[in-house]
Amino acid sequence: MTGKTRIVFWGSPGIAASFLRDLVHNHSDRFVITACVTQTEKTIQRQGKTAARSKVHDTALELGLPVLTPKSVKKEAREILSTLSTFGYDLFVVVAYGKILPQSIIDAPPLKSVNFHGSLLPLLRGASPIEHSLLYGFRETGWTLQRIVEKLDAGDIIAQSQVVIDENETTGTLYEKLSADLIQNGAQMLADYADGKVTPRPQDESAATHCGKISAEDGRLNFERPAHEIFNRCRAFTPRPGVFAMFRGKKVKLALSPPPVPLPTRGEGVPEAGVGTLTKHGKTDLSVVCGDGNVLNIVSVTPEGKKPMAVADFMNGYRLQDGDRFE
């Protein structure tokens, strides 16, 4: 289309807020953000109840943009569209908004509605693609700009960008990479779409995979699994919600890392010990035996209700005995 494209921006977390700021500061010659829609304030129990706004809400106020925070997009669809029409729009852009849009909202703009999804669709449709790309040991992920349809993350693909995943990548570092990639490539993807320079292509339904929401219980480690799977779970759930095991009947959060050399097999030096068994190496190093006979090094331990402990402090404070194990 000719002229500037008027966008209503739908998003909530920091990764969306960074992209919103980039569009306003660096692409005002091509786009006009007329309003933002984000999630309602959440109540946080921290020395009393405190209302916390989303990162997009704070950024929109900083930029002087109108903000809507509907409790139910479906029930309030008519009111939302009535309000947004006073600001004007050509396109709705969604980045991790956190709620499903009804068809009446999807179809309202002349250019319809598009979504930046944090995976290379059709892989990892759903709520937590970044975490699951690490959980499954992917070596590459990226962004997919897709048309929004009623079926979750099943719309035609408009454009994609690729991001390499390093061996020791965590969700925290991968978020930073993806945020930088979105800022580098996202505006051009939107411009090409708005200008009609790309032909969206259907997704291959036979290749589609799915991922759900993450819960704290997902961080529980099962040391009967192979070492690489356990380490991938640590990567996926760092920094949140973290990973944990049980030690002497109590919950302990863990930080693990693979050894700097290939993991040995039982025949190459790993003790004949059961899975989860803790193995001391001198006074400062500790490892745990995994289901494939390989070991992972323990970086730190956080007992329930306490601060993180260095491995040496954990070994001394809990007077580790032969046969102690994580369960």
Rank of each mutant, 00 (worst) to 15 (best):
E76P: 00
T83H: 09
V8S: 02
G196T: 01
L254P: 02
F223Y: 13
M246I: 15
Y318A: 06
L320I: 06
A180H: 07
E140G: 03
C211H: 04
Y89E: 01
P66K: 09
N316E: 13
I214D: 03
K280F: 02
V164Y: 03
P122K: 05
D218C: 10
V270I: 15
I214Y: 05
M1I: 13
N222P: 02
E205L: 10
G269D: 12
A236K: 02
D29L: 11
I183P: 00
T144W: 03
G126D: 11
A16N: 03
T2D: 05
L120F: 12
A51F: 11
R201V: 15
G293M: 10
A35F: 02
T2F: 00
V198W: 02
P202V: 11
I80C: 12
P110M: 10
K307F: 04
R201P: 00
E205F: 00
I130N: 01
T38L: 06
G14K: 03
P241E: 08
S104A: 09
R53T: 12
L174Q: 14
N222K: 11
E140Q: 15
T38Q: 07
S113F: 00
D218P: 01
K250L: 11
V243K: 01
L145H: 01
R30E: 11
M189N: 00
G276P: 05
T5Y: 05
G64T: 04
Q45T: 14
D22M: 07
T144Q: 03
R220V: 08
D192A: 12
L190G: 10
T141N: 06
V149T: 15
F237H: 03
T173H: 08
F314L: 10
C234F: 15
G14P: 00
A96Q: 09
G274P: 08
L152V: 15
C290W: 03
H27I: 09
K42N: 01
S161D: 15
C36W: 02
H27T: 04
R266W: 06
V295G: 04
L174K: 10
